[in-house]
């Protein structure tokens, strides 16, 4: 059931990317999409009543004790790359603002004539 919530986040992100005109809002929509995808990937590894995949006292690594660690490791990679993408996107947005003086995609075209 909770996985539908994460898919909802993905869909909200796609909707934002399709409709928004403000560049900052586009970056935010990209991040919402990313969070949705990450949460969904983690949820595919959830085992019922499983604990975090770290060995501790008195818990042997028998089948069914831990949740799947592999999606978590993949999402760790995805989060770091998401940070890099967001930083680069914000840099480009700042450069665009310095050149055009606006963040709105529609207002940008009329000013770039000169």
């Amino acid at each position: 059931m909770i996985q539908y919530l994460f898919i909802g986040l993905i869909l909200i992100g796609i909707y934002g990317l399709l409709t928004q005109k403000n560049l900052i809002k586009l970056v935010v929509a990209l991040n919402v999409l990313e969070v949705g995808v990450n949460l969904f990937i983690i949820s595919t590894g959830y085992v019922k009543d499983g604990v975090a995949p770290i060995l501790f006292k008195g818990v042997p690594s028998t089948n069914g004790t831990f949740v799947d660690p592999l999606p978590q490791a993949l999402v760790l990679t995805a989060i770091v790359i998401g940070v890099g993408v967001t930083a680069l996107a914000l840099t480009v947005v700042r450069k665009i603002y310095e050149k055009h003086g606006t963040l709105n995609l529609d207002e940008m075209g009329s000013e770039s004539d000169d």
């Binding site: 059931m1 909770i2 996985q3 949820s43 595919t44 590894g45 959830y46 085992v47 019922k48 089948n63 069914g64 831990f66 949740v67 799947d68 660690p69 592999l70």
Partner: peptide
């Protein structure tokens, strides 16, 4: 698989 019904013994993890 359905949420929570993961069988880890058939996965590479």
């Amino acid at each position: 698989p359905k949420f929570g019904n993961v069988n880890l013994s058939e996965r590479v993890s």
